[in-house]
Design a protein around this nucleic acid. Sequence first.
DNA 1: CATAATTAGGTTTATATGCACATAGTGGCA
DNA 2: TGCCACTATGTGCATATAAACCTAATTATG
Lengths: 136, 136
Amino acid sequence: MCFNLRKASRAVTQVYDEFLRPGGLRTTQFSLLAMLVGKGPMPIRTLADYMVMDRTTLTRNLKLVEREGLVTVRAGDDRRTRIVEITEQGRDAVKQSLPFWQDAQDFMVRELGSKTWSALRANLGETISAAQTTND
Amino acid sequence: MCFNLRKASRAVTQVYDEFLRPGGLRTTQFSLLAMLVGKGPMPIRTLADYMVMDRTTLTRNLKLVEREGLVTVRAGDDRRTRIVEITEQGRDAVKQSLPFWQDAQDFMVRELGSKTWSALRANLGETISAAQTTND
DNA sequence: CATAATTAGGTTTATATGCACATAGTGGCA
DNA sequence: TGCCACTATGTGCATATAAACCTAATTATG
């Protein structure tokens, strides 16, 4: 299953990256920014948990979008933490890329059928939870 | 969906990597070697297609397992091609890691339930095909 | 047969991923 | 108060991923 999941992930990422290309954001970056738009400013650790992404991976990914001025990172009240916040420029970037993302989404739904689509969506949610039960 | 697929891929890969660790192979490497065991020697391009992996990604991944003596790469009759073949040492590595892989598989099936498991399996297959219709 | 189009592959560059290890701040407890 | 466990983060290393560009061999076409 891990085979198939990774294959599917690569294949679908390629589709989304292709659609997103004119907007200038990679799939990873769009996901990250969209999460920040939805949830507001938060420490790196919290964002990493939301993204189901290794904390250190996120640190690297943040460097790129920070360099582009799409997010800011500042110290939190707890001075161990660093708070990530999306900038106006970041919001614009998401806004610009959103239609391309929608196109990609529409393409995949059209190809898959909305029934398979929602089944997959549900199953992936369960799979993520299942995989994370190791971290107890 | 791309979010969820990538999240699930990361989460599940971590589970498999964790289980495979004592065998000394990464998930990617195990997948690659297992494919070669199943399908026999073939050119890089063909293997990349089977793996739904970019050709250049495969080249890098091959370098690692070639360095470990797990595969050999030689020129084909068509002298543009390079034929990848698993070595005895490679077969041994797969054999050694197989039980760990099975443990990971069992863990995921147990956590997910075999019904969700097979549904997911089927959906992922469809998804891979769907995503690849872009390459027309 | 000569040349154009196609195909297989490598290399460069950039992003993505995560483990092991190190550092610094917080909070509890003797 | 002083120490220790815990938590948040960064860095070094290694692997994974793929687009862009380049070369060489094969195949198609006139």
